[in-house]
Amino acid sequence: MDIVFIFEWLDASWLSDLARTSAGLFSMVQAVHILSMIMLCGMIILGDLRMLNVVLTGVPSAVIIQNTKKWIYIGLAGIILSGIYESSAIAMKLATNSFFWAKMAGLAMGIIFMLSVRSAVYSRAPEVIGSNGSQSDPVDAWVVKLVAVAHLFIWFSVAANGRWIGFS
């Protein structure tokens, strides 16, 4: 499927005009993009490091994961909205940028993996990790830790590829 037309449309849109002409606003949106990344990745790091028993060991994991959810969604909305605005300024350049596509693939994978596998596995964490009281049918501890590592890896790639778009 050829999706270059999306980039052509974005490139010709009023959003692109605005992004190219107002440097001050553009820099503020860039800051929002970074701040949203901090919120999103900060909450993800907290949840995953908790499940790896690296931070807040012994504190019920369900409480931590539940609390991070709302901020993860706010952070996601922030990076996506500010990201669309930023990309409109260089839409045609991004259409052929491999780091951009790697970032988008990572973003899609990260969201799907987070909402499906990670969410299901973390809610069935064994007592040794979750500290939520004994569960009748928990997932093995090593599986929980494997999921945490894989999840951290995906979001690291999203952030690192994002930074590298600027250098390429």
């Binding site: 970074i34 990344m37 901090i38 919120m39 990745c41 900060g42 909450m43 790091i45 907290l46 901020w71 690291f156 952030a159 690192a160 930074r163 590298w164």
Partner: peptide, 16 residues
């Protein structure tokens, strides 16, 4: 890249 990515750890924990 390290400087920017480490923001997520430092300011991420501070945010919490």
């Amino acid at each position: 890249g390290t400087h920017v990515l480490t923001l997520t750890l430092f300011l991420g924990m501070l945010l919490v």
